[in-house]
Design a protein around this nucleic acid. Structure first.
Lengths: 264, 264
DNA sequence: AAGTGGTCTAGACCACAAC
DNA sequence: TTGTGGTCTAGACCACTTG
């Protein structure tokens, strides 16, 4: 059997690179291939967010490798927050619901007081409707200009103080039926709603931050002035397979909050 | 032998929790203890930044554990960027010099063009002198109000465009003799200089970001106006053992740059 | 050829959770 | 008691680097 044959559920290939072959084009360790297979099952929705995945021993049997190899594959998935391990219970598909850290992608924290004041942000939806994607929005969402996207504009308030003004764009076909009612009243993080209602799990995000001045209307929504600088935060959120599934442009008031970042 | 006895170089304790003891107060896996020991050697400067540390096999022998256990300890150190593994060569103490990513803690990127335009930022030092720490600076550096600190104010320019105005505070006793000449002309990142000249390795940092307007003088230094919002970035930088060793307050011009952050 | 980190295995035992 | 993930070991072999 040739080395580095990609494993598939039908033809598990525990064999190592043991034959004399001229080239090893792109050596991929077994555990990486196993990781890829598990990833496929996650993408395919074989196990849904919050659910228990098969035990290491069972997966080892299924893929015909040792438990240690499965373990290393799952270790990496856990490091990427795709999966959560719980000793004595098993390994679960990660979710934006019960993660210790709700609002995993929101880096805005109050300057003082309990950091989880955020837990109960009031959402007020300004609008929510289908529009045609502009060129730049289409580009970042990997769509075509003019494709249908859902545009949501909302305000997040903490302690009844408007703090975040946010525009969200989502591809219509995936989020078909999303409406203002749902955005406003779903209990829990919006990303949790995306999982539950649309089967879309957001996995990672990239943000670009600037300092800007709000225009007149933006200032009004944020109950501030056009002379008060705010953070402009552009977030592209990705689901499995590095597919961009959301674009957000937010204005963050930083009078009594700050954007926090840990570097290592 | 009691379980969970902390390992020491003199009394290696490979034993597991195998005796019948009423309580296991704080179970700590062997590899964590090994990690702690290696960490101690790093802190003590036994191996300096850029140097090769003993091989896994040698460390395993020294600590009387298996290679696999040492491996897991080093895995974590590598994940925290304290150490760098190179197949075939060995494991090296991480450094701010040759890391693929120089300027590891600088998240400001140009909007367009090659991202490593940053590589050659011009530094111009406005001032560099010893002062007495104010209350808030002393607090974040874990000093006493009035303790001697070195204050540096400098401007970083990209393509001859002033972009960052930065105030830096460092504890004087550790950085004794630091002067403007050194800050301006050291070839390579400032954090690399801290390693080479003062034996201080910065390990991680925390940043708090706001949008603000510069005052008249700040605007002048940045060659902008008091009506142009800028990012206020406050960074606390830590060395081993979570000891804060530097406070930076920077103003970042975001006209043609942005602060980038990856969330996962 | 020798030495290093990287992968893979098989087996033993521990800590934790649930029945 | 059983099953899960977590730790630890010993040994084999692979891939990479250097002499």
């Amino acid at each position: 059997m040739p080395p580095n044959t990609a494993l598939s559920p039908d033809t598990p290939t525990p064999a190592r690179n043991d034959s004399a072959v001229v080239q090893t084009p792109a050596f991929s360790p077994l555990y990486q291939q196993i990781k890829g297979l598990i990833l496929q099952s996650l993408q395919a929705g074989e196990w849904k967010p919050g659910e228990l995945i098969p035990s290491e021993i069972e997966l080892a049997g299924r893929f015909k490798v040792s438990q240690g190899t499965v373990r290393k594959a799952i270790d990496e998935l856990a490091a990427e927050n795709l999966v959560t391990r719980r000793q004595g219970k098993g390994t679960f598909v990660a979710t934006h619901n019960e993660e210790q850290v709700q609002y995993r992608f929101l880096q805005l924290h109050p300057d003082i007081g309990q950091q989880q004041d955020e837990g109960r942000a009031q959402r007020s939806i300004i609008e929510c409707k289908r529009i045609r994607a502009s060129a730049d929005i289409a580009r970042t969402l990997q769509l075509r200009t003019g494709d249908s996207v859902i545009h949501v504009r909302r305000i997040l308030s903490f302690n009844n103080t408007p703090t975040i003004l946010e525009d969200i764009w989502l591809p219509s076909p995936v989020f078909k039926g999303l409406n203002a009612e749902q955005m406003a009243h779903y209990p829990g993080p919006t990303y949790a709603m995306f999982e539950m209602e649309y089967g879309v799990r957001m996995v990672r995000a990239e943000e670009k931050i600037r300092a800007v001045l709000p225009d007149a209307q933006q200032a009004q929504w944020l109950n501030t002035t056009t002379a008060t600088p705010v953070l402009s935060v552009e977030r592209v959120t990705f689901t499995y397979n590095d597919k961009p599934m959301e674009l957000r442009r937010g204005l963050y008031l930083t009078d009594s909050h700050h954007y926090r970042n840990a570097l290592s």
